[in-house]
Design a binder for these strands. Structure first.
Lengths: 306, 306
DNA sequence: AAAATGTGTTGCAAAAAGCGCAACTACTAT
DNA sequence: ATAGTAGTTGCGCTTTTTGCAACACATTTT
């Protein structure tokens, strides 16, 4: 059954005003239009909606049912308008981002806190993932952007910002190497190591640096949890390799120390804000991306591609 | 804010089908139309509804809100269709009638019972009124029709059917006059009378008949309740004047007797099914009117006017 | 009872909205 | 890179809607 909303609107106004002419006046339209639209609606529905052959409008039972529907629809519409207003002022919406686990920490928490305060009502989803999962999430449009170490290049994924984040050897302050300003890959490999699994880009880069020096990495502990790796370093059972900010809290209070590693691959590690190609961010999204850039990637550069 | 339903429909189908072309195919329409309608909707609303610049359709938050609205509207529409179907098959609706009190009785009850069985779901309102109230109800379209003794003529009220219903002197079977075949107005006026109030047409006709005979009516009991009048007759405290069917039950079981009155005005009393001029009854209404005609007005004639 | 007033309705031409076709740009995949 | 398929846009055509005016009718007033 075809029910044209436009026609129901005329019927409603005619009923509300009491006569077609009054409705026509109110709608700034010719009375004939009102009459015809109502008549048309009646033939489409197949039932009389108003009591014809009278001076003024009075509805049949079917007519009452129709305007009841119309009024329900109207309230639904007002609801929609409210939602659209909220969305347009960015007071609601979805933001879904993926973050490499190395970025969990006070800086991220602060950033998210500020964002959620500014855009209360925004539904925020943060997936903490490894590199391969982030690729999948980005490619399948399940997240708006991701923050991670640059993965293998893919034509559909581009970097919006990047920042140098050297990987450091993280160890207990009591460790014999803790006071050194830097150390070599050989020295590193001689120590017991706690590293991430091979599907993390951090680990892949460490492996690469080791191979370039003809060395072999054989960590005593492998984990996908930064917290666990830090715990190993804290207990001085192993040295781990991470960006400094991943353990900034422990570094600040002097429990852990970070020592630079003499390997070009580990010095020129970039962190990227990654997104799918040709995606344009709505206002609140670019706002969040910007805040993340400022607080998590303080040395960030705009990188238009790759 | 203007939200054209037609456009939302296209948006919905595009979303459901996954692409505009698929939607266009489904709707048997050109893809360009879909694109344009969605674009138009976006400019009217003032927000992007789909993520443009992609191969396939994916909705923005605003788009999701819109199709949520559309789906709610759709269920409302299905509800409406159900209601209209019920109404068209006359399984629901309103019937409002006015009835002179003289008609309350088994015949009316039976008629209404049958009608309500045949049209279960119909909302039936029966107003029991005096003549002047019935006039008002009819004139203000508050009832569909009325059954009563013909009131003072009014240009806006016409009679659909009429039937002769002579007014009889109703008295206890034990009354000395009860075995008479008829009686005169003089004899009637000599008895203690229990009659309706002056705003009932029955009473007006009795008064008229008395005046024509140079008599004066002074009832010992006046009431607007037929039941009370019958009670007076039953107790043999008075004689009352009513149509026979008003007390058919008591007549049938021999408690009361009805005696004809020799007065032309009271012999040619008509009962009418009254309605406002130029009102056409829907199916269930004329059905009820017809049933009332057959059962309450067995000697009915079609009376096209007045 | 008849005229007057305001109602809904209908015919026809003008205006507006929607549509299809075809060419175009752009995203995605091989 | 290249082909294929998606959305978009310009233009002419069709369908729908509108306005004006005249009409038919209900209701009120005289």
């Amino acid at each position: 059954m075809k029910v044209n909303d436009h026609r129901i609107h005329f019927l409603y106004e005619a009923w509300r005003s009491g006569s077609m002419r009054a409705a026509a006046d109110f709608l700034e339209i010719a009375p004939s239009s009102v009459s015809r639209q109502i008549a048309q609606l009646e033939t489409e529905i197949g039932t009389a909606l108003i009591e014809h052959g009278r001076r003024e409008i009075s509805l049949t039972d079917a007519g009452h049912a129709v305007i009841d529907y119309y009024r329900a629809r109207q309230t639904g519409l007002e609801l929609l308008e409210g939602q659209l207003l909220e969305i347009s002022t960015a007071r609601t919406g979805h933001v879904e981002i993926a973050i490499g686990e190395g970025f969990l920490g006070p800086a991220l928490y602060d950033t998210l806190d500020h964002f959620m305060d500014d855009y209360s009502g925004i539904n925020l989803t943060v997936s903490v993932t490894d590199t391969t999962s982030m690729m999948r999430l980005l490619l399948e449009d399940e997240v708006h952007f991701g923050v991670g170490f640059h993965p293998v290049s893919h034509p559909q994924i581009v970097s919006r910002y990047r920042a140098t984040v050297p990987l450091m050897a993280i160890m207990n302050t009591e460790n014999s190497l803790a006071q050194r300003r830097s150390m070599t890959m050989q020295e590193l490999c001689a120590e017991p190591l706690a590293l991430m699994g091979s599907n993390f880009r951090i680990r892949q880069m460490i492996d690469e640096a080791a191979i370039n020096n003809g060395l072999l990495i054989s960590p005593v502990v492998t984990s996908n949890s930064i917290a666990l790796l830090a715990r190993m370093a804290l207990a001085d059972r192993a040295i781990t390799v991470l960006p400094a900010f991943s353990v900034s809290a422990e570094l600040a209070c002097g429990q852990l120390s970070a020592v630079s590693i003499q390997a070009p691959q580990l010095q020129s590690v970039y962190v990227h804000l990654l997104a799918r190609r040709n995606r344009r961010f709505p206002a609140h999204l670019s706002e969040l991306a910007d805040q993340i850039r400022k607080r998590l990637l303080p040395s960030a550069l705009s990188s238009s591609n790759e």
